[in-house]
Design a protein around this nucleic acid. Structure first.
Length: 195
DNA sequence: AAGCGCGGCGCGA
DNA sequence: TCGCGCCGCGCTT
């Protein structure tokens, strides 16, 4: 086996939710490590179901270089959730963690949207229409569908995109209400409180 | 061909 | 003023 999926999760207590973080890397030393997926869950059961369905393997012994990077990555996310003003995209790049964005956002339109979004800093809110204007498009709805399939929330800060009129807007496929929307609001407030 | 994590406009309280 | 519904929009599946 040259390559394997490694996952780990973080529990947040207030509000309570779980974050699954999935890396892919080989056993070889100095080989690249890829951040495959970050996903939120309301409870641990849902998380485990997802892990099972994707055949992810949990990390056992964090000893080699890659596993050290994984530990650092998880700690960065933990610190972020505690309110530290951290740009996870930049930090992960410093760790030489790869994202393979062009795979998930293969069309020029989606790639440009993501690149524009990545210029938004900690606590800097933007809107779907603002992102559209930045790339000369009025396809506001389409921007929503791009962000909806974001495999790396927090790292690709889709929670900073709200509706032009000020409403929270959708998150994780949900529109108006639900714990997903509450989570988006929580993340926004977390950042606004620590700018 | 249908469906959107949106915006804008026009309506009626 | 609002809130709500409808339509247009450009892109994705």
């Amino acid at each position: 086996m040259t390559s394997e999926n490694v996952s780990a999760f973080i529990k947040n207590v207030d509000p309570e939710f779980y974050i699954l973080v999935v890396f892919k890397h080989s056993n070889k030393l100095n080989d690249k490590i890829i951040l495959v997926e970050i996903k939120f869950f309301k409870n641990k059961n849902d998380l485990m179901e997802h892990v099972k369905s994707k055949n992810y393997v949990f990390l056992k012994n964090p000893s080699d270089e890659n596993q050290e990077k994984i530990k650092k990555s998880l700690n960065l996310i933990r610190k972020y959730l505690l309110g530290r003003k951290i740009n996870l995209y930049d930090e992960f790049r410093l760790l030489n963690v790869e994202f393979l964005l062009e795979l998930k956002f293969s069309s020029p339109f989606s790639y440009k949207i993501i690149q524009t979004l990545l210029t938004k800093g900690y606590g800097e809110l933007t809107s779907y229409s603002q992102l559209g204007e930045a790339i000369g498009s009025k396809a506001y709805r389409a921007i929503g569908t791009i962000l909806k399939k974001n495999p790396l929330p927090l790292v690709i800060p889709c929670h900073r995109v709200v509706k032009k009129a000020g409403q929270t807007g959708g998150f994780m496929g949900k529109m108006n209400s639900g714990w997903e929307i509450e989570l988006k609001r929580y993340l926004i407030n977390l950042e606004l409180a620590h700018i």
